[in-house]
Design a protein around this nucleic acid. Structure first.
Length: 273
DNA sequence: GCAAAATGTCAAG
DNA sequence: TTGACCTTTTGCA
């Protein structure tokens, strides 16, 4: 269930469990067998998140090749998942792409779109093709806005373009556009600088909240049916997967359409063209 | 109890 | 543009 907030959370968890220790790596499924051989016995230097990508930095044994650091690159895709626990390793059930473990903890990966070993150069190339990550942003998303403001493509597509900004997925896309009352079809070059700064600031707030909570909640308490206590799943969003239901703000029926190969949700009244 | 969809990306054609 | 990835959840019987 991965947008950028999930990956940052995961990177922190893995650092806590594995950083500085020597790791065993294997691939019960076999699809990562070669990579596992390269990394097995290496020391974990750290784990970083870049948008929806995670990078585990390994320092392989010094008495055998390779002598340079290597990175485990994982992209969870739509249904990839890491699970962690304490040793011993559980029995393999189903397709386990890869496992890493030390004396105390293990983590195992299933279903990822990408699992590969990268050199420092390839890591640089990966980072170079990714846009600014709101979770790491130190300015008002200036680099991303430079791309958005020059584009005639719809803002709803630009928000999902990982080269424009990294880490935003279908949920945050739908919700942030609703919160700012922007029609997803509006061209990027018709989003004002002020609108952008405000949108970016909220994106940071919402994504950071997502990291803390481990889930995406975008609704303000006053806009929920159940105002107090833990946020119910059906109270967590304004428009995402709420098509056919009334808008929390104006009561208009929320719409859903295919847009750029993904489902797009919006309120036609609040987000009028 | 089963089918369809899901917070995503890439390669093939 | 389509299918693959191949797990988990959801929705309908």
């Amino acid at each position: 269930m991965p947008e950028g907030h999930t990956i940052l959370r995961l990177a922190r968890e893995h650092q806590k469990l594995f950083k500085g220790t020597v790791l065993h790596v294997d691939s019960p499924q076999g699809k990562f067998a070669e990579g596992a051989e390269l990394l097995d016995g290496g020391r974990l230097i750290g784990v970083q998140a870049f948008g929806k990508h995670s990078l585990h930095r390994f320092r392989p044994f010094e008495d055998g090749p390779p002598r340079f650091d290597l990175w485990l690159h994982v992209h969870l895709g739509l249904y990839g998942k890491w699970v962690t626990g304490t040793v011993p390793l559980p029995e393999v059930v189903g397709q386990v792409r890869l496992r890493i473990w030390n004396d105390e903890h293990f983590a195992q990966l299933r279903g990822a779109t990408v699992s590969e070993v990268l050199t420092a150069e390839a890591v640089k190339a990966l980072q170079a093709r990714l846009g600014e990550d709101p979770l790491k942003s130190k300015d008002a998303g200036a680099t991303s806005y430079a791309k958005v403001s020059r584009s005639t493509k719809a803002i709803g597509l630009l928000l999902m373009d990982q080269a424009v900004m990294a880490g935003v997925g279908n949920v945050y896309r739908a919700e942030i556009l609703f919160v700012h009352r922007i029609d997803p079809h509006r061209p990027g070059n018709q989003v004002s600088h002020e609108q952008w700064q405000s949108l970016w600031a909220d994106l940071i707030t919402l994504m950071r909240a997502g990291v803390r909570a481990g889930r995406i909640v975008t609704t303000a308490p006053a806009d929920r049916e159940k105002v107090r206590g833990p946020v119910r799943r059906d109270d967590a969003h304004y428009v995402y997967r709420r098509h056919g239901m009334p808008c929390r703000i104006c009561g208009t029926e929320i719409l859903m359409e295919e847009f750029g190969g993904r489902r797009l949700y919006r309120c036609p009244t609040c987000q009028a063209a």
